[in-house]
Design a binder for these strands. Sequence first.
DNA 1: ACTCTCAACTCGTAAGTACGAGTGACGTCA
DNA 2: TGACGTCACTCGTACTTACGAGTTGAGAGT
Lengths: 256, 256
Amino acid sequence: MGEIQRPGALYQQVAAEIRSGISTGEYTPGAPLPSEAQLIDRYRVSRPTVRKAIAALRAEGLIEVIHGKGSYVRAVPAPAVTIERTITRSGKTFRTGHHQWQQAEAPTVYRTTTTATTGPLLELAEGEALFAVDRLLTDPDTETRALHRILIPFATADQVKQLAEAPDTEPEQIYALLTKAGHTLTWHETVSARMPLPDERTALHTPDATPIIHTTRTTHGNDQHPLILEELRAGADRTQLAYHITADSPRTLHTV
Amino acid sequence: MGEIQRPGALYQQVAAEIRSGISTGEYTPGAPLPSEAQLIDRYRVSRPTVRKAIAALRAEGLIEVIHGKGSYVRAVPAPAVTIERTITRSGKTFRTGHHQWQQAEAPTVYRTTTTATTGPLLELAEGEALFAVDRLLTDPDTETRALHRILIPFATADQVKQLAEAPDTEPEQIYALLTKAGHTLTWHETVSARMPLPDERTALHTPDATPIIHTTRTTHGNDQHPLILEELRAGADRTQLAYHITADSPRTLHTV
DNA sequence: ACTCTCAACTCGTAAGTACGAGTGACGTCA
DNA sequence: TGACGTCACTCGTACTTACGAGTTGAGAGT
């Protein structure tokens, strides 16, 4: 299979060659790629060039490299965990494939203040006092991890005494408490993705070149004012979000 | 500022040095880093070492490098576009911050077949015939781009004649057509994130080290059978998804 | 005053060489 | 038989040298 004939930089050509080898099934998920030395022979290029090609494939998340062993084709990341958001129409509830997190450690409870990011979301000025609860969640079956944070403004804790006394109330019960306090709840949730910071990589055990999914949810009460703010961060290699939506007219869900 | 004294590989030490320079404000967003030659002098290392350090910072999304000019500290990317999904309760519709895409080019219409990925989502066997419509969408204000794909099984096109005649019907009208054909629609939407493939990077103009958000939506008709499948891919640096949810009881939205 | 060319700067690619460090298998020795 | 060490193989880091290619500004020429 001698030299190569493709456009662009040499290392890009080698990378493209390997890439197509993966897509044609020459290299199957889990299988090792040829070693650097073999790739050097195969494509008649220098070692730095081979290594740049491999680095490019790593950055794309296509392969995984283990020091002393070799490079392996990464399995297509079929998400191990699907986080479900089920929205119902007019009282009829249905849930599919509900996934249950477990708490790996005791929650971390502390006090903090609103920042330039969290303040506007809670419709509070910067520097307002909050309770914060951090949890490391795990799915024992798949070893999947997620970071969950709840921010509770003092104003909300004043309304719901139990939140002031025990901010680390199980997340499952908080919505019930807010409802019990007389609120009809609505939620605003945003989903974004980015590369993890070093400490997030450590906590979530994400491999190279895998982004994290970051969701931010505000829960609103009767006066449409935000009551609490939740953040969920999870590795995108193992986690996806699912939304099940029933609407009353096709105009209520935007196309595209 | 001579040599360096930090743990780990040399290039990691240089990268950490520059990283802390960014966080201390020595290098502010938009400002140029010292040139490679200057960094070589400053830290007394070779050019490959400096370049590896710079490559690491690029992979983290911290800096941007322009050929022939220099390396620049990247500004924190506030998403320019929010894609809204508005779910309503019992007939009352409300929309906030609606964002409108424009089509950059004529849609690409072609025929294809179900794959191992798309087959199960459409509840069809592998190899079933489909219409496919690819669109490159842009937001002219922010130069944000997105890739949209609609897959229409022949069975659905048979039910709705206009889809068979013109699969490239505007996406905004497809839901209306399906409703007109007698369907009450529900949607299942999943959100995942991953690093872009080279052709996606080209099409979406994403900078280094920015993932893409990938959403997959199936539209279901009266018998809960999938009618069409839509995919939307957008750069996570400029795009986030927002879900506005009104439910009837707190038990209908899962905590966490 | 304007335009064009060129030189000097920037980063990008490619080669060659050397050595360090992790992994696993084989063989020796107790 | 079992434990250990060695060796061959893998990838990781680092230096040197060389040239290509994009960007910019200064200077010469018109």
